[in-house]
Design a protein around this nucleic acid. Structure first.
Lengths: 140, 140
DNA sequence: TTTTATTTTTGTAATCATTACAAATATGTA
DNA sequence: TACATATTTGTAATGATTACAAAAATAAAA
């Protein structure tokens, strides 16, 4: 995946987010680790590289990025929020045993809806839950 | 909506859940109040009728009902879980301003997916976020 | 009916993710 | 350089949820 630093920098600047060391690191981590990490996973993954990193900064950063639409917040697990650098439409699957969250690429989503409520939709999330391959074979 | 007591009782018994006063009350509340309430909403809505009700009981009850598939847990809001007595497939919409959660009836959901991950799906959730009608008109 | 076992409810205390806040640091600008 | 602004950091607070054990209710056995 090896995303170039300059590319990440431009991505943040396009969203009017100043590319600080911490923000660049969080963004790079999300781009390189497509595991939909929790705050703790991001924090643990970066604290070797940035020993002074604060968990609050990770919270602040993902909020900034998510509010600007650079990343998306995934609310599939009641325990922790997850973060995803991929903002294109795709489905997410969470395993009810190991709590892993993986992408399910969708080629087409067609929902016939009676928008009787006259709401203005800005975000769509398609979540699936069940058992992942590893947990299925382990429990046999 | 006026759901008959006997009907609720049978619904619980069919799922092997003993129809205690508290469980019946929670189930009835969910059937009569299709607002996808939080724990607190359920608790506040019932404490007049059952003054001795404990919030822990509400937590226990919705867990029991949800684990048996009698109701569904909605994880659309990062602040609180919501609960829904309607277990048929339908979409949910959350307003980013007033936090209300409303049903969006869907007549057909067609997702073309490459299930390359070979997962076993047991639950599907279709969530939308944005601005509800009331909040849209208020902010004009 | 009385006794015993099991289930359910309740209140309190603990846990843990997230947020609030203010001081410290870094960065941008005049 | 000096000043203003933005960002980071650590600590403390918040608040939803869970753990736990005693009390109450219900079912089963005698």
């Amino acid at each position: 995946m090896i995303t170039k630093i300059k590319e990440i920098q431009e991505r943040l600047q396009r969203a009017d987010i100043r590319p600080s060391v911490q923000r660049m690191a969080v963004m790079e981590f999300l781009l390189e680790n497509r595991i939909h990490p929790t705050i703790d996973m991001i924090y643990n993954g970066l604290s070797a590289k940035i020993p002074t990193l604060s968990k609050t900064t990770v919270y602040n950063t993902v909020k900034t990025l998510s509010d600007s639409g650079v990343i998306q917040t995934i609310c599939i697990d009641d325990k922790n929020l997850r973060y995803d650098a991929d903002i294109a439409l795709h489905a997410h699957f969470k395993c009810n045993i190991c709590d892993c969250v993986i992408d399910l690429p969708v080629s087409k989503v067609q929902v016939e809806m009676q928008n009787s409520e006259n709401v203005h939709i800005t975000e769509t999330h398609l979540y699936y839950k069940g058992f992942c391959e590893k947990c299925r074979t382990n429990n046999k």
